[in-house]
């Protein structure tokens, strides 16, 4: 069954890298450019996994994570922090809010795939149906 991954990051480049990384897999990538938009998209799309940046406008990653955890419809969605900030303070906050993983930027696509596979099953993308236009 196809999986849905939400990437919340104000950097268009990071959203593009995440999309490109998961292209070989049977999953859909949706994006949001800040924390507030991320919570809205998460409520609409109910993703199987969220990648979340910390330094963002409107709502930062930690505030967004707290919002996700206190919203019953999306509280149980696994969240992986994908951020350049990995100091003890940030790690401690994210850990308290029960993150499923923490990837410190700079990162390689392989790291995203390896961690994602530990959290949700990832199947290769099925071959395109030649009958479909």
């Amino acid at each position: 069954m196809s999986k849905k991954i939400l990437t919340i990051d104000d950097s268009k480049m990071v959203r593009m890298i995440v999309t490109s990384t998961f292209q070989p897999f049977d999953c859909t990538i949706v994006g949001a450019a800040d924390g507030a938009e991320g919570v809205t998209v998460a409520l609409q799309e109910k993703p199987d996994l969220i990648f979340l940046d910390i330094t963002m406008p409107v709502l930062n990653g930690i505030e967004t994570l707290a919002k996700i955890r206190e919203t019953p419809e999306i509280a149980a969605i696994p969240v992986v922090m994908l951020t350049a900030e990995s100091d003890g303070e940030r790690l401690g906050m994210a850990d308290k809010l029960k993150v499923s993983g923490y990837i410190a930027k700079p990162f390689k696509g392989d790291q995203l795939i390896a961690l994602t596979k530990k959290i949700i099953p990832l199947a290769p993308k099925p071959p395109a149906d030649p009958k479909k236009p």
Partner: peptide, 24 residues
């Protein structure tokens, strides 16, 4: 055309790492 975005993201990563070092 993506060059400004790339420089911004590189600096964002460098700045985030540096800021974390300062905090630690």
């Amino acid at each position: 055309e993506l060059f400004p975005e790339i420089v911004g993201e590189l600096l964002n990563i460098v700045g985030g790492n540096f800021k974390s070092n300062l905090v630690d």
